[in-house]
Design a binder for these strands. Structure first.
Length: 458
RNA sequence: GUGGUUGUAGCUCAGCUGGUUAGAGCGCUGGAUUGUGGUUCCAGAGGUCGCCGGUUCGAACCCGGUCUUCCACCCCA
């Protein structure tokens, strides 16, 4: 019985046109990763579970795809554990491997394992798929690509500055105008939590704060209260909810708010340095704004936090993000290696470019010239001509069988071929070929002994 | 993981309170046109109505389950 074919939830097939467009984005991103001095690495699609588990919080652990052990794995579980039917506890006994959830943690593992071969600061880029057992939504898949650039082994803030320039360069090249790079600093958030006396609830505080533009001031306060943050503390943090004005105005306000927090002050200073340096360097097309409510991202960030928002009017979550993490390699035994990195969300950038119609024209043109087939003898001559064109790097093909011209032309039309070559009995007799321009219908005759004339006209 | 939503021809979608043989546009195939596509005209093919079960004399339509789509939450690229 034939079964109806299907693919798992949250995964996709890509058509030729989609692959070409995705490659276009990959190529731009990759090219600029390289011009900024990053080197490529790749890591396995699955890692040992202990490498990944516990690095992304409880929520993250739930979203990691676990790989079942091979063999009779259930038989190896001890009876007591089995009878408890506790999925979380039994997982580690039946699964030792898991699909990678992002590229940053595997990179940290890579740096630790290869520390003696690397020259620090080590700048690496990595473009590979990652998997999350999430519930799919628009722009949210269970298999998707991340394009990451990270620097480890340097705590210079110039790295942050360069990464912002890298974002700006890539989005400018993609013609994606009006992208906003949001910038915040974990130290500021920690400082605020300290100042208002909610140091232990930093994560809950930031997660709630992050929702400000979504659920509003009242919604944020409500959530903070429900997480156990006191009314007094929330009132103290109130200036945050209305932080407006220019970047420098906001920095000054933060300075005042954080005057009793050493860590918070440091965060403001870092932010100020990055902002001022970027201002003096200038940006090509992106906007850089401070957003103290920006808190998303993973728990391992310790300094700068980036998030890239699509141009206004496009409904899409963030199309990139990143930040500085001072001790990611520490969990694998390598201390005092600071890292900072950014990620491009390829799948979402694709959706945005598609929506705004920003892919180059004719990008998915897979064929420039199609030779029609008029029979055995004529077909052979056409194939010779096709071979010459191909040697000149022209995407050329010959229709494989002597079908009706109507059908051959229709095929050329559907494949969007700009030039069709007719080489029939008459042309063969006088060593010529006819080129039809499919846009305007004009036909020109060229000599078979001077194909260069046609090639030059392209 | 929680709540909701969607699924009918290759594609986009109609289909009345449950009632004979489930429709349209586009696309596809053939013809008008034996060497000229994208326009036009004519004809034709194509559907286990997501899947499984239930209610009913009778189910695309009602009910349950399941898969899928999209949305909100959680979280995130």
């Amino acid at each position: 019985m034939a079964q109806k074919p299907s693919i798992p939830k949250g995964t996709r097939d890509f058509t030729p046109s989609e692959v070409v467009k995705r490659n276009y984005i990959f190529d731009v991103v990759k090219r600029h990763f390289q011009t900024f001095g990053f080197q490529p690495i790749e890591t396995p699609s699955f890692e040992n579970s202990e490498t990944l588990m516990g690095k992304y919080g409880d929520e993250g652990d739930r979203l990691i795809f676990k790989i079942l052990n091979s063999g009779d794995f259930l038989n190896k579980v001890n009876d007591e554990l089995y009878s408890l039917k506790d999925s979380n506890k039994i997982t580690s006994s039946i699964s030792e491997k898991a699909l990678r959830y992002d590229l940053t943690v595997p990179f940290a593992r890579y740096v630790v394992m290869h520390q003696n071969e690397l020259d620090f600061p080590f700048k690496r880029y990595q473009i590979q798929p990652v998997w999350r057992a999430d519930r799919p939504q628009k722009g949210r898949f269970r298999e998707f690509y991340q394009c990451d650039a990270d620097v480890v082994g340097s705590d210079s803030l110039l790295q942050e500055v360069e990464l912002i320039q890298l974002y700006d360069t890539v989005f400018t090249e993609l013609k994606l105008d009006g992208v906003t790079i949001k910038l915040n600093n974990r130290k500021i958030l920690a400082g605020i939590a300290e100042v208002i006396g909610a140091k232990d609830l930093l994560i809950d505080f930031t997660v709630a704060l992050d929702k400000l533009d979504k659920i509003g001031e009242d919604g944020v306060k409500k959530e903070m209260l429900s997480k156990g943050i006191s009314e007094f503390a929330i009132e103290k943090a109130a200036p945050l909810f209305n932080l407006k004005g220019s970047n420098t105005d906001q920095l000054d306000a933060l300075d005042a708010l954080l005057e009793n927090s050493k860590e918070g002050k440091k965060g403001v200073d870092e932010l100020r340095f990055i902002m001022e340096t970027i201002v003096s360097l200038g940006m090509q097309s992106a906007k850089l704004v401070i957003d103290v409510t920006l808190a998303r991202g993973l728990n391992y960030y310790t300094g700068a936090i980036f998030e890239v928002a699509a141009p206004k009017g496009v409904s899409m979550g963030s199309i990139g993000g990143g930040g500085r993490y001072d001790d990611l390699t520490g969990i694998f035994g390598l201390k005092d290696v600071s890292g900072v990195g950014i990620s491009f969300g390829l799948d979402r950038i694709y959706l945005v470019l598609e929506e705004l119609n920003l892919f180059p024209e004719a990008i998915d043109r897979s064929l420039e010239v199609l030779c029609l087939n008029f029979g055995t003898k004529e077909g052979l001559a056409a194939l010779k001509l096709t071979t010459v064109l191909r040697k000149h790097g022209i995407k050329a093909d010959i229709y494989p069988s002597e079908a009706k011209l109507n059908k051959q032309f229709k095929y050329a039309n559907n494949r969007n071929v700009p030039y069709v070559i007719l080489l029939g009995e008459e042309e063969l007799n006088n060593s010529s070929f006819v080129v039809k321009n499919m846009q305007n219908g004009e036909q020109k005759t060229y000599s078979l002994s001077d194909t260069q004339q046609f090639i030059d006209s392209l």
